[in-house]
Amino acid sequence: MFFAKSHLDLHNIRGSVERTVKLSDNIVGVGPVGIGLDGILAWFGGAGSLYSLGAGGVLLFDGVRARAAPMVLIQMTAVLLIDALLPLGPPGLGAVADTLFTGQKWAGGMLIKHMDDTIYFEGSRKDAQGTAEYRDLLERIRSGKEKRRVVFLG
């Protein structure tokens, strides 16, 4: 099963994103400031970039599974590429920049916010069309009270 088919799948995807972000950018934290594997490995040659690419790949994979909009995936990719390339800068300076730039945290936050702004219906559009919940949602969208994205998981 590649794409999320249920709210349980979406819950698991969200958990995966949160774990990846915590491991990457906040293993050790004091208040809002933290450091994770991404920042630590940036001090060891190409290890930081390899880790950043792997963690970024996990976040993008989760975004595709959650059926994120293409523009969100493109924005996440841009942030994650910058994060992966920072450690390749001048020795020392690249590592400091990567330690301070929390790309996985930023990209993961984008995905979670996008998921929160999306209304997911289990089943197909045809299944949902007959429900009162769907009709109410359409009315709110048409009246301008609701501007959320609707995704069918079937």
Rank of each mutant, 00 (worst) to 15 (best):
G29W: 10
I35G: 15
G89S: 07
I112P: 00
V150Q: 03
L59A: 00
G45K: 05
V96S: 13
D9Q: 02
N26T: 12
A68N: 05
D38G: 13
A4P: 06
M115D: 02
D9N: 02
L93T: 11
Q75E: 14
D117H: 10
E133P: 07
I13Y: 03
L10C: 14
F61Q: 12
L8Q: 15
I141L: 00
G45Q: 07
M76F: 08
G130L: 08
G130F: 02
L53C: 02
I112N: 02
I74E: 06
T77P: 01
A97K: 06
R149N: 11
K147W: 14
F101Q: 10
K126D: 13
A78K: 09
S52I: 09
Q129P: 04
G123S: 01
G103H: 02
V150G: 03
L80T: 04
N12Y: 14
K5L: 12
S16Y: 11
I82N: 06
L81T: 11
R135W: 04
I119M: 00
F44R: 09
V151H: 09
L60Q: 00
S124L: 08
F2D: 11
E146H: 03
Y120C: 01
G34L: 11
L138M: 14
L137F: 00
G31L: 03
R67F: 09
L81K: 09
G94I: 00
G94F: 01
E18G: 07
G154N: 04
A47H: 08
D116S: 05
G46W: 15
R140P: 03
L50M: 12
P90E: 13
L88G: 04
Y51R: 03
P32K: 03
H7F: 04
G57H: 02
I35A: 09
A66I: 00
P70F: 06
L137R: 00
S49L: 09
D62G: 06
A68M: 14
K113Y: 05
G92C: 05
L86I: 10
L85N: 10
G34W: 03
L100S: 08
V21T: 07
L80G: 03
F3E: 11
Q104D: 09
G15Q: 13
L41N: 05
S6T: 15
R65M: 11
K126P: 07
V151S: 03
D127L: 12
P87K: 09
T118K: 01
H7A: 04
A128K: 06
L138Q: 15
L81G: 15
P32F: 01
N12W: 12
K147M: 13
I112S: 01
E146F: 05
I13L: 12
F2W: 12
V30F: 13
G48M: 04
S49R: 03
I74M: 08
L59S: 02
D98A: 15
A97I: 08
R142A: 08
A97D: 10
F44A: 14
F121G: 07
M110W: 01
